[in-house]
Amino acid sequence: MPNSGFEVLLSVNNLRRLAVGLGGTLEIALISVAIGLALGIFYGLLLTSKNRLVYGLCRLYLEAFRIVPVLVWLFLFFFGSAIVLGVNVEGFFVSVAVFSLWGCAEMGDLVRGTVTAIPLHQWQSAEALGLDKWQVLRFVIIPQALRKITPPAVNLVTRMVKTTPLVVFVGVTEVLRVGKQIIEFNMMKNPLASFWIYGFIFMVYFLICWPVSRFSKKLEERWAF
């Protein structure tokens, strides 16, 4: 075959552009994961509240981010802020805000599930041993909760990474969009470029997500009883 299309991956320019796109993907993913997970822990504790108003508001937020697709939230923030408030927010900030809020909502629900799953007698027994509130949390509750929450939290992280291509709709350049640009540029003279570019992007996502799940597996093994 004279034109296998593989040469699109040998071009320094193409690789450089894909790398820049990947930077965009990682930047949004990492910042949102960090903010989302950190806020999600506190939000999860709020979700265990017995106060009906606090619980109701938290629940509303959670359901809103669960029911409404992320793409719609991106549009709401991106175009909504401009049309309703007259404020022009860049796509990057919109993406980070929406992904953080989404991560926070999902993480919060995981935390709530884990905390409620730890039996009350764990608190009571620890207190009976003379530990104070912070010690109970530090030595009894958190270690157990952490172990329980790691698998679903890692799942959430990889889901967030894999959802980042949606940010192209608010004008952010990420790796999948760069790939598409290169494919379209080569469409006429190199129709097989799509195979190699998409294959490359597949590998990139795999290389991001796989170590994360390996790491969580290691943690689980280390923490096993």
Binding site: L39, L45, T48, V54, V89
Partner: peptide, 28 residues
């Protein structure tokens, strides 16, 4: 303890909101 945690949580959410606003202003 849980009450203190709730308060800390609410404070943090408020902080996030204010930070969000600051971001918005910066991107004006």
């Amino acid at each position: 303890l849980t009450e203190r945690l709730y308060k800390a949580g609410i404070l943090l959410q408020l902080l996030a909101f204010v930070l969000g606003l600051a971001f918005t202003q910066a991107a004006f």
